[in-house]
Design a protein around this nucleic acid. Structure first.
Lengths: 171, 171
DNA sequence: TATTGTTATACTCTATAACTATA
DNA sequence: TATAGTTATAGAGTATAACAATA
């Protein structure tokens, strides 16, 4: 890891748990710990993507979506899947198209739509990024005990479901 | 929770775990689950801060720092603690000062420095926000079983320490 | 020379909304 | 009317860098 990367990462990642004071409730401390971990990891990934591949997380995510659907996706589908508004998909797609990583293909049956899909170059590029991405993750979690890894996965599963249910239940 | 809030929250929170495909490694799935949970919670907090208090997370964090040190802090200290560059502290402080929530106090011994501290209004305001903040957190974690809560706290502790060690170890 | 704080600028990410072409 | 995609704009959040005043 480069020194700049470390600096950038640290700059983005205050140890938020220090926000907590002794009287704080346990849930608050739990949340701050969760947030700190997540931010630490996420900004390392962002930094890696930037320095190793001159890319960003949204670009990576868009390419990941396309890689899973070899026939390509409509922009509106991408928008729904990535839960980002249409205009933003246009913007990211413009960048990636300019670099020859994705292509827009006109749909015969609906002249308003385009299908976006990875070009051969885009597939190669994504494969490389995804490989590194997985390796970054792997190495960041490497020191975690098997027991903690399993319980983390389970507990987060419960938390995730709860949070999502809370949202949809009140919509 | 308002409907706009829910929409905004959902818009910001794709279920990133769907990025994972069956062959993905366990660590990757764990990370995506962690990220999803974190983003879901964080953007609910951001939305709450915005709609209930017309505030933002960095502003809340800065006020939280000040609340813990009643004598106030120098801007450079704030910058170090929040791990954000000086210019940004100036910007947030300007906003908060304009609203009468913090005040700059000249330091006699070093005419370059100012001490920033919460005003009485700022203290009241922060207390209210912190109370709500804790309640939001509490209600978001409410459904989590005691067992999962404990194991999450422990596992994240290990993960946090690891990640931080990884960084400092290579610096 | 180094540090404190300010100012100016730029970039990423994302939302809102007006618009067009088509359905 | 409704939908697909584009364009323009705005705002949060953050970094870099030049600068003045002071140490």
């Amino acid at each position: 890891m480069s020194e700049t990367l470390i600096t950038a990462t640290l700059q983005n990642n205050p140890d938020l748990e220090s926000r907590a004071v002794p009287e704080d409730h346990q849930d608050l401390r739990l949340w701050l710990r969760l947030l700190t971990c997540c931010n630490l990891i996420e900004s390392q990934i962002r930094s890696h993507l930037r320095t190793d591949f001159e890319s960003t997380l949204p670009r990576f995510d868009l390419m990941a979506q396309l890689q899973r659907t070899p026939g390509g996706m409509k922009m509106s589908e991408l928008s729904r899947h990535m839960m980002v508004t249409n205009g933003n998909i246009t913007g990211i797609t413009d960048q990636l198209e300019k670099e020859g990583l994705v292509e827009r293909i006109k749909v015969a049956t609906d002249r308003r739509s385009s299908i976006i899909r990875l070009t051969a170059k885009g597939k190669r590029s994504f494969r490389k990024m995804a490989k590194s991405h997985e390796e970054w993750i792997r190495s960041m979690f490497a020191g975690l005990s098997e027991k903690n890894r399993a319980s983390l996965f389970e507990a987060l599963g419960e938390l995730k479901q709860m949070t999502q249910v809370n949202l949809s239940g009140r919509a």
